[in-house]
Simulated scan of single mutants.
Amino acid sequence: MPELGLPAGASVRLTITGRADRDLHRWNVSVLPAAGGPARLTFGSWIGGRDLHQRIDIPAQDVDCRLEIQSRHHNAQGWADDRASPEEDTPDRLLIGFCNPSTRGARPDDVLLSFAFDTRDRQLAKEDADGQGEEENEPEVRKPKQPKARPPAASRSYLEPALRVAAKPSARPKA
């Protein structure tokens, strides 16, 4: 079962796409605290048949978490795990394809889960929040942790927790 690191304050837009000519699959994504404990959120659904495109937004969490990802297909014995394969891995997007390897003509992306990471939800430090001077009556603001440097793309795996996305500079002009 693939797992991804999800830093505190980062939200995820998850898009799930199924191929029209494939059997039904069942996908699940759970959001669990990185330090351990029960799932905070669990998402899942059937994909296939007439329902070939789904989208959910995973809200930002207040602690570092991990995403557990699973896709399964139905067979004579019940449900079996699909084979996972990374399709694309960039700093702000990850695509994981799933397929039933025993199906003739199976493609690695019969079911495709696309994770778009957004770190704009993180609270950034504000200078002089009340306009009375930088040191007077300012709220205590924690600056976000700097993500670890990512290894070169050739050595990076979608299973590594290094998928934490660096915050992008704001495009908004300063007042």
Rank of each mutant, 00 (worst) to 15 (best):
I69N: 01
A35P: 00
S71F: 09
E68Q: 05
A175N: 02
I96R: 09
W79V: 07
S11T: 11
L24H: 14
L32F: 06
R164Q: 01
N28D: 15
K148D: 10
A116L: 03
C99Y: 06
R66Y: 00
S11G: 13
S170K: 02
E68L: 00
G78Q: 07
F98H: 14
G36S: 07
T119G: 00
Q132P: 00
P86A: 15
D89C: 03
E127Q: 12
A125F: 05
T90N: 14
K148H: 15
A167I: 02
D118H: 07
E138G: 03
A34C: 03
E127P: 09
Q146R: 14
A20V: 02
R66D: 00
L113S: 06
H53F: 12
D57M: 07
A39V: 09
R22S: 11
K143F: 01
D110E: 06
G44Y: 01
S30M: 08
L113D: 06
P139I: 06
K174H: 11
A167N: 04
S155D: 11
G9K: 02
I58W: 05
Q132A: 06
E138A: 08
P173M: 08
S11D: 13
R120H: 13
V165H: 00
A167E: 04
S71T: 15
S170F: 00
D128C: 03
G44C: 07
G78R: 03
P169W: 04
V12F: 08
N100H: 01
P86T: 13
F43V: 00
R120P: 04
Q132D: 07
L52D: 05
T103W: 09
G133E: 04
R104N: 01
H73I: 12
Q132V: 06
L52S: 05
P38Q: 09
I56K: 10
K148V: 10
K174Y: 15
V31G: 01
D62H: 14
G37S: 04
E135W: 13
L113C: 09
A10P: 00
P169Q: 09
I69E: 02
P151I: 14
E3K: 14
D51K: 11
P101Q: 01
A153K: 14
I58G: 03
Q123A: 11
I16H: 04
V12N: 04
E3Q: 15
R19C: 05
